[in-house]
Structures are given as structure tokens and as C-alpha cells.
Design a protein around this nucleic acid. Structure first.
Lengths: 206, 206
DNA sequence: ATCGTTAATGACTTTCTAGTCAGTAAGGAG
DNA sequence: CTCCTTACTGACTAGAAAGTCATTAACGAT
């Protein structure tokens, strides 16, 4: 029998780490609680000391992950010393593209995408904790750019789609739809190219 | 006992229609074969006369759905009489935004997004049958624009992300992440705004 | 009408896993 | 050392659902 260690404080985080790993490999429904427990170095029973149910684990996990990336993006924007909207937008897109190229980071949003349909609560949680904040971040940035006279005054809902969409597409193309034969372009190249299009558009003369 | 009707030719399609409905409500794992059968007006056993297994149904479904939208987009581009790249791109984005605003149409890509992680075969199928074709469609359109002198010569991988991404974002925001309190902007408005940004960018003076 | 073939049924078996709980080891207090 | 509390175990239960198959109804041909 395996040695049993007592350290209850660290358990919930350890379990959620394991859960993220297993969930993103097999999906929520395909994940076995016993596998999560094993990966966290525990027995199945112990998991139920910390979480009511498997579904409760999923919610706790998404809650924990929700603000990681958006929080980082917010501080990135907040700590921009000179408030140059164009430069800040460029930096923001680059940061997000780089982050989302890391499978460990993108595991969270991918999990949410996969399960939000089946668990509306997850979708609502993500909408309020992540999307709403991203929307506001962009809105403020847009206001700044307009005030500086460098940005056109664009509808915020459209801007959100135009900025976040390519990042999502990149994430999907470099994970679930990736062709193992030929790897996609490097994150820096993508970030560079995307900001270029978002800022200047596809047409010449701009 | 219910009346039994014999019409084997129509069955596979009817079953797949039912499967799409049930899968997009509850996800693949949550769907019960018996529910799919019931919705198709059959018993569970009959389903297994037409499909080897539940997973085989999913693959057949994705295979059937794969080219619907992309095929339509291809003919749309092909039947553009005057080969004006800008106008064609505008029309293409508008068409896709409108299509993907319809939950019945977007059910297919949403299902693929949700299940591609767990079933790599699904991801590969979609990559080859849908994404590759979209990539080529855009590449040709881009070449045309460059030849006409209206488009800048942009990396195709970047262009794919810049065009498809906002559409995916729109689809997600108007389905899984939609706020029932306030509906998002109408598809025509979104299409109009997105083409505007893709063509001219966010900056002024373009 | 009868018979053979095929479409379809639904009860059954099998498998799998979420969640439970009686019991066990570790550590601390006295 | 002894007892008590607490973290943990793992065998067990209960339920659900995939896939099977012996049986039955419908149809077409003779």
C-alpha cells in the first residue's frame, strides 16, 4: 500500500491541476474521477472529501482559471507607461497570441469551448468573468485611440470580434486542427501579421 | 405498439438529422442512442442496422456536414461574374456571418469544436474537408486582389486567421456565450463592420 | 393465400463509473 | 503509551447506457 501523506491545505489545487490535465485529454464526460485522483496522488474517495461531485470540480476549475489570462492582459495594459493606443493594442495582441500558443494556457479556453454547450453555467461564468472584461478592456483602449485621433470610432461589439477572433482561430489551428506534418507559423509572426491587418487592413494605400 | 413503416433508403439521413439535434443539445457523450432513435422515429436496435456504433454515427455526421457551408461559399465565389476581389471578399464574409448566425447551421462547427479534442479523427477530417478548402479559397481571392493591385500581399496563414477568426468569434458570442438579457448585433451589421475592419483596419487615414 | 426475405423491435446482457462508507493509518495531546 | 481526531483508502453499490439478438411484422413474388 502506498504511503499516505497528510497535507490537506494543498489538496484542492493539486486536484484541480490533475483535473485540467485529464479533462483536456478526454473531455469532461470521458474523464474518470479515479484517473484524476491517481494523477493527484490520491484515491478516488479523497477527491470527494474536497469536491461535492465531478461537475462541481469542473465549475471550480473554470472559476480558478477564468481570470488568469485576462488578468494578465489587464495588468499589461494598465502598466503601459506612455498611453499610446496603437502600441498598446499591438502589445496586447502579441501577448495574447503568444500565451494562447502554449497548450497549457489554451487548455482552459478549449475546455470551456467544449463543455459550455452542455453546461450553460460554465458558459455564463466565462462570459461574465472573462469575455465581459475583455470587452471592457478593448472599449477603453478604443476610447483612448479615438481621443488621440489615431483610431476610427468603431462599434465595440465588432472590435471585440475582430480582435479576439483571430486569436481564437490561431489557437484552434495550432491545437485541435493542427497538421502534425507541417507546423503553423511562429506566434511572433502571427502576432505581427494580425496586428498589421487589424490596424491597417487588407487593402493597399493605408 | 407503434406502427412500423419500411423505408430503408431514407433512414441514414433521418438518423443523422436526429443525431445532429441530440448531439448539439447534450454533446456526444451525453447523447443517448435511444433518444436519437426516438427522434428519428425508430427503436434503438434499428439504428444499429445502419451504423456500427455511436462513434461511427458522429464521424458519418461530420462527413456529411463538412462541405455544406464551404461548398456554398465556393460556389458563391465561383459565380461572382465580375472578378472584383474586394467586392467578393465583402460578399464572402457577409455570407458566412449570416450563415453562422443561424443556430442550425452553426450546430455543425460547434459540434466539431467540442469533440475534436476527444476524437482526433474528427479534427483531421474537418481540417482536410473544410479548413483546407477555406484556406485555398482565400488564397485564390488574395492572389486576385494582389493581381488587381487592390490587396496587399499578405501571408495566407495570417489572412485565414484574420478572416475566419472574427466569424468564429461571432458564432460563439451569439450562441454559447450569448447573454439572454441583451441580444448581440444583427448579422448584417456584424458582417458590414467586420469587412470594414478587415479591409481598412482600425487606424484612420486609410 | 403462402412463403421467404428484410426492416424493425425491445428485452436483455454487459460494461463502466459516479458516488458511498466502513474501516485504517498518521499524528498530536495528555 | 493511549486515546482521539482527522485525512485517507478501496471495496462496494447503484444506475445508466452501449451494443446484441431472438422474435415479429410488413412486403413482394409466385
Amino acid at each position: 500500500m502506498a504511503r499516505r501523506v497528510r497535507r490537506p491545505e494543498a489538496r484542492p489545487d493539486e486536484i484541480l491541476d490533475a483535473a485540467l490535465a485529464v479533462f483536456s485529454e478526454t473531455g469532461f464526460a470521458g474523464a474518470r474521477v479515479e484517473d484524476i485522483a491517481a494523477r493527484a496522488g490520491l484515491s478516488k474517495g479523497a477527491v470527494y472529501l474536497y469536491f461535492e461531485s465531478k461537475e462541481e470540480m469542473l465549475k471550480a476549475l473554470v472559476r480558478r482559471l477564468a481570470d488568469r489570462v485576462v488578468g494578465a492582459a489587464e495588468t499589461l495594459v494598465a502598466t503601459q507607461p506612455q498611453a499610446d493606443a496603437e502600441k498598446t493594442l499591438r502589445m496586447l495582441v502579441t501577448f495574447m497570441a503568444t500565451q494562447l500558443s502554449d497548450p497549457k494556457v489554451s487548455a482552459a479556453p478549449r475546455l470551456v469551448l467544449a463543455e459550455a454547450q452542455r453546461f450553460p453555467e460554465i458558459g455564463a461564468l466565462y462570459r461574465d468573468a472573462v469575455i465581459a472584461r475583455g470587452r471592457q478592456l478593448l472599449a477603453r483602449l478604443c476610447d483612448l485611440g479615438v481621443a488621440q485621433g489615431t483610431f476610427r470610432n468603431i462599434d465595440r461589439e465588432i472590435l471585440l470580434r475582430a480582435c479576439a477572433g483571430p486569436l481564437i482561430a490561431h489557437m484552434l489551428l495550432s491545437t485541435v486542427f493542427s497538421d502534425p506534418a507541417k507546423p503553423g507559423p511562429a506566434p511572433e509572426i502571427v502576432a505581427q501579421g494580425l496586428t498589421d491587418i487589424i490596424l491597417h487592413g487588407v487593402l493597399v494605400q493605408s
